[in-house]
């Protein structure tokens, strides 16, 4: 058999599993709600916790790629998707302004397309990404604008459409956040939202996000190299406690 250069290239591709952390950096995230820490301070502990966890295993870092995006009036890339072993120093989320989900969804689609083109160029074959979306609710943009951006991000014809898992603290409600889950209930492998229960401390709840993210990273990395119905990303919240609904 003769193989063209591109065939050979395709056969040599390594597997990767991209994760994105998306954090609401509206001003309300900086106000402590009962505890010592604000939500944004807690959010800033997610990346170090997850990176430490990934580095604790010899092989997780081979497979996992981590990126971070924040959003307020606009959305910005905080950490370009990368091997966590290359991340130094670990970037910080800082608050500014309002809350545009639409900006976050639009930037995500752009970044995912850009990152996957880069991964292909670097000879990787990537699973569809997972997005952990952390917000304290009350988006300030038009509902129709958010819906349009969400539909674009999760368009079935968009091959890289992410698994979207919203985490709500503060005023965010289950009703509000469930509409931003992807894929939704009824699909083959539905995702879900997590909303902090009334009276819980947002900072403490956000600390749990790091745990869910890390255990999902581990479960997913296992599935990447194995036969299974999960198809890459596996949401693992077995150790979830009662702070979340």
């Amino acid at each position: 058999m003769t193989t063209s250069a591109t065939d050979t290239h395709g056969d040599d591709r390594l597997l990767v599993l991209p994760f994105y952390i998306v954090v609401d950096v509206s001003l309300s995230m900086s106000v402590p709600q009962g505890g010592d820490k604000s939500a944004i301070q807690a959010a800033n502990e997610i990346l170090p916790t997850v990176i430490d966890g990934i580095e604790a295993s010899p092989t997780l870092g081979d497979v996992v790629r981590l990126g971070a995006v924040d959003f307020s009036d606009d959305a910005r890339v905080v950490l370009r998707l990368d091997d966590v072993r290359n991340v130094n120093p670990i970037p910080q989320f800082t608050v500014r302004g309002a809350t545009s989900y639409a900006a976050a969804f639009r930037l995500l689609r752009q970044e995912i397309e850009k990152d996957y083109a880069q991964l292909r160029g670097d000879n990787y074959k990537a699973y569809r990404p997972a997005v952990f979306f952390i917000t304290d609710g009350e988006p300030t943009d038009d509902q129709s604008d958010i819906v349009a951006a969400y539909n674009d991000l999760t368009d079935p014809s968009f091959k890289l459409r992410p698994n979207l898992i919203p985490f709500g603290v503060g005023t965010a409600t289950k009703d509000q956040l469930d509409q931003w889950v992807y894929p939704k209930e009824g699909s083959k492998k539905p995702m879900r939202s997590y909303v902090m229960r009334d009276g819980a401390d947002p900072a403490k709840a956000i600390t749990k996000v790091a745990e869910i993210l890390l255990s999902s990273v581990i479960a997913s990395a296992q599935s990447v190299s194995e036969q299974g119905s999960a198809g890459g990303f596996v949401l693992d919240d077995e150790d979830l406690d009662s702070d979340w609904n």
Binding site: K125, A126, Y127, R128, S229, G231, G232
Partner: peptide, 14 residues
């Protein structure tokens, strides 16, 4: 498996 596919997947019908 996955020949010609852009995105990796592990879905099987066992």
């Amino acid at each position: 498996k996955g020949d010609g596919e852009e995105v990796a997947s592990n879905a099987v019908r066992p």
